[in-house]
Amino acid sequence: MSFKGKRLAKEYKDLVSNQVPGITCEATDSFDTLVIQVSVLDNPLYIDDSYRLRFIFSDKYPFSPPQVQFIDKIPIHPHIYSNGHICLNILGNDWTPSQTVASISMSVQSMLASNNLNQRPPDDDNYVKHAPENPQHSSFYYHDDTV
């Protein structure tokens, strides 16, 4: 098994055995893609909703970040585009190999939990029109670091 495969097998085992409230990992056949379900327990904007994050891992993982985006239902948030792309620095320039699927999922969950604005990023329409399929090929502009 490759280093990436061993690392992801350990992360998957940890996710399943050390469950974080509001974060569950869906069963998988391979470690190239994982789907994580995220719920926010304490924000009325997202109460009774759950969202699915798709993680796609390159062979360079954990030395490069996975592609992470919302699928199916996209939460409304000033840093989440309507195509599911997430403007989050740890998924780009601030990535470190110490990040894990769990830590990314908790960061996204925390981002949702602390949000009080029911709006998309200001450039959502334009971004979605021109966005690459892979969110890692985007150059995000951080509009407001307070949300």
Rank of each mutant, 00 (worst) to 15 (best):
C87D: 11
F140A: 03
H77R: 10
Q119S: 14
A102W: 04
A131Q: 03
P62C: 14
V40Y: 04
L91P: 07
Y12W: 07
Q119D: 08
D29E: 13
I86P: 08
T146C: 02
L53W: 07
I80S: 06
F63R: 11
V147H: 15
Q69I: 00
S107C: 08
R120T: 04
K10W: 07
T146W: 05
P21L: 07
Y51P: 01
I47P: 00
T28K: 03
N43I: 05
F63E: 13
F63L: 13
D48S: 13
D14F: 04
G5R: 12
L34W: 11
R52A: 09
G5N: 15
D124P: 02
P62A: 13
L45D: 05
G84C: 15
S103C: 07
Q136V: 01
P122V: 10
N83H: 04
M111I: 05
N43Q: 10
R7A: 03
Q136R: 10
K4F: 01
F31W: 04
I86T: 14
D72M: 03
S103F: 09
A113D: 12
G22W: 11
L34N: 08
K73E: 01
Q109S: 12
L8Y: 08
D94A: 11
L88Q: 01
I74Y: 01
W95T: 09
N118I: 02
